[in-house]
Every structure is written in C-alpha cells, then in structure tokens.
C-alpha cells in the first residue's frame, strides 16, 4: 500500500510538471492577441496593468473549466459547492489564493519586469525550499535525509537549466532598469508566496476532496483581483484608463479562447499537484514539480514557439534534476506510514 501511494504520488506530480511546462506555450502566445500585444510592446505600467487584468481573467477561466472538467466529470459538483460555502474549509482556499494569486503572481511580475524572466523563473525554484520549511513548521512534515538531499539536487538542477552565467551577466549589466531592487523583492515574494500557498492548500485538503477544491481556490483568487487589486490599480493609474483595458480584454473572445488552453494545461496541472500533495507531502511534491517543469517548459517553448538551440546547461541541469527525483523516490528504507509526525 505504501509503495502504491508513493508511486501514484509521483505519477500525479510528474504529469502535473509536464503539463505545467507545456502551459508556457499558451501563456506566451496569448501576448500576441490584441489589445495584449500593444500593452506588452508599450511595457512599464501598461504591461503591469495588462498582467493584472490577464491574471484575473485566467482565474475566472480556471474556475469555470476546472469546475466543469474536474469537479463535474468526477461527479463532485456538490462537493465543490460545499467546499465553497462552508467557511471553516473555504477560508483555507481564500488564504491560499492570496499567497499564490496575489503575492506570488504579483511578485513574479515585478521580478520579470525589473530583472528578467530568467531570474523570475530561477528564484521560483526556491518555492520548494520555502514550502518544505513552512510545511515542517505548519504540519510537522517529516524531512528525511534523502528528501533534503533530493530537494538540494533538484534546486541545483533547476538553476543549471536556467544558465546561471547568462543570468549573472544580465543582472550585472549597467543597462539595468532603475529600481531593480523591486525585482529582487518581487522574486523573493514569489518564492515565499508559492511555497506558502501549497501549504494552505494542503491544510484545506485535510478535510476536503482534492477533485472539488481547485475551482474554489481560483474562485477566491478572481474575487481578490476584482475586489482588492482592480480598485487599487484604478485609483493609482486612473479608473478610465484601467477599466478601459479591463473592458477591452474582457470583450475579446480570442483571449478567453487561449485561456482555455492555459486552463487545460496549467489549471489541470495545479489540480494534479493537489492530488499529489496529500500522498507525498508538500516539500517533496513542490521540489519534484520545480525540477521538472523548468526543462519541460523550455522544451515545449522550443518545439511550439521559439527557434533557439538546446544548450548544454539545459541538458546538464535536466540530468541533475532527474537524479534528484530518483534520490527522493528511492527512500523506501525511511518511508513512514505518515508524511507528518503524529500523536496517537
């Protein structure tokens, strides 16, 4: 039974990582659809506003697609409704939406805008470290020596994939943007946010079904964008300007069309991660995901969109990350009945 749950935990997380990697294709392609294309080209505040609007649209689309595809197909629409309306459960997904949707997403946007996408992706790998530490504190999750070693090897592999030499050159460049420190703060916020988000998801999953909670988490994220971030952004940049972009984007069917692909990749990946966490623990699940989604995303972008060559860094980093996965998988000697320390 123990080996079976470890096997299924790995299967869910690896499938999630591959879909997560593929999701960068629709996420990149969507920026070629107008009005997003022009806002991307303008950069600066326009890009930031477009990112906020897109994130809210994405959470709306994820709520709808995952409710229909995940909860209804698995015959659990009633479970999803109960998870949403019963506050002692629903509140964990609201907290999770805050850390994952607002803190991590916004932090990652700052990191991308002020430092670069490579730095934003590299720093996000640290979410597995923050997740493992927070899960240790919140749930007393057991961290075996092999798990700690596996997490370290996976993070090293992920960083190698991102070509650290090119990244350092980029960061040290004298042509860097003003206020670059905002990017570093944003990067750290994203790593902490994603790590903590996974822990609060698992806190909700302790008493709720994994197949009926992901739409609830995205529903709360949509509400947070609409009720908190939209009015604040409108007040800062001007309501006419900001809500003009909101209306333009929300009335463009092509954007929603592309978001269906994002929901089918990133949204389903998130749902699969939720299935994997209760079987593997947050620390291990996050580390495996981070180690695999980075090379998977680079390969997916190379196959579908970009015309760049596969570097030696990518190959070496992928091999190191896969070694890290195997280190964690083969820890049967230390495998416990529970991933947490328990009091009977």
């Amino acid at each position: 039974m123990k080996s079976n749950r470890v096997k299924w935990g790995f299967i869910w997380i690896i499938l999630a990582s591959l879909l997560w990697g593929f999701s960068y294709v629709p996420q990149e392609a969507i920026w070629s659809i107008e009005p997003l294309g022009t806002l991307w080209y303008n950069g600066g505040a326009d890009l930031l506003e477009a990112t906020i609007v897109l994130a809210s649209m994405q959470s709306l689309m994820f709520t709808i697609v995952l409710f229909l595809l995940w909860s209804c197909v698995n015959n659990k629409p009633r479970e999803a409704f109960r998870n949403l309306v019963h506050w002692p459960i629903s509140k964990w997904f609201l907290v999770s939406a805050f850390f994952g949707g607002l803190m991590a997403m916004f932090g990652s946007t700052l990191a991308t805008a002020f430092v670069g996408a490579d730095f934003a992706a590299a720093i996000a790998l640290l979410s597995s470290v923050f997740g493992a530490i927070y899960a240790r504190v919140l749930f007393k999750e057991i961290l075996t020596k092999k798990m700690i070693l596996g997490i370290i090897v996976l993070v090293v592999g992920g960083i190698l994939v991102l070509d650290p030499q090119a990244m350092v050159n980029n960061i040290m460049s004298p042509e860097g943007k003003d206020g670059v420190w905002l990017g570093y703060v944003g990067g750290i916020l994203s790593a902490i946010g994603w790590g903590i988000e996974s822990c609060y998801n698992v806190r909700g999953l302790d008493v709720a079904d994994t197949e009926a909670t992901t739409p609830v988490r995205y529903f709360w994220e949509f509400i947070l964008w609409m009720v908190i971030i939209f009015p604040i952004t409108g007040a800062i940049v001007g309501f006419d300007t900001f809500y003009g972009i909101v209306i333009d984007c929300f009335t463009t069917p092509e954007i929603f069309g592309m978001l269906v692909f994002t929901a089918l990749s990133l949204g389903v990946a998130d749902s699969l991660l939720h299935k994997g966490y209760p079987l593997m623990g947050v620390g291990r699940g996050l580390a495996i995901n981070s180690g695999i989604y980075v090379p998977a995303s680079l390969v997916a972008l190379w196959v579908f969109l970009k015309d760049y060559s596969i570097s030696l860094w990518l190959l070496v980093g992928t091999v190191v990350a896969i070694i890290g996965v195997f280190i964690m998988y083969w820890e049967t000697d230390e495998e416990q009945d529970s991933v947490r320390e328990i009091e009977a």
Partner: peptide, 22 residues
C-alpha cells in the same frame, strides 16, 4: 462502486497525513 473507492482513498490520504492511524 466509484464512491466506495473514493471513500477508501480518503482514509488512505488521512492516514498519510496523520489524521488516522492504521
């Protein structure tokens, strides 16, 4: 049959997460 398997799986998840003990 589906719900019988689902509920059995819930118990396994709860054991792994320390809420039930075998």
């Amino acid at each position: 049959l589906r719900w019988k398997w689902v509920i059995r799986f819930y118990m396994m998840e709860m054991e792994i997460n320390g809420m039930l003990v075998n």
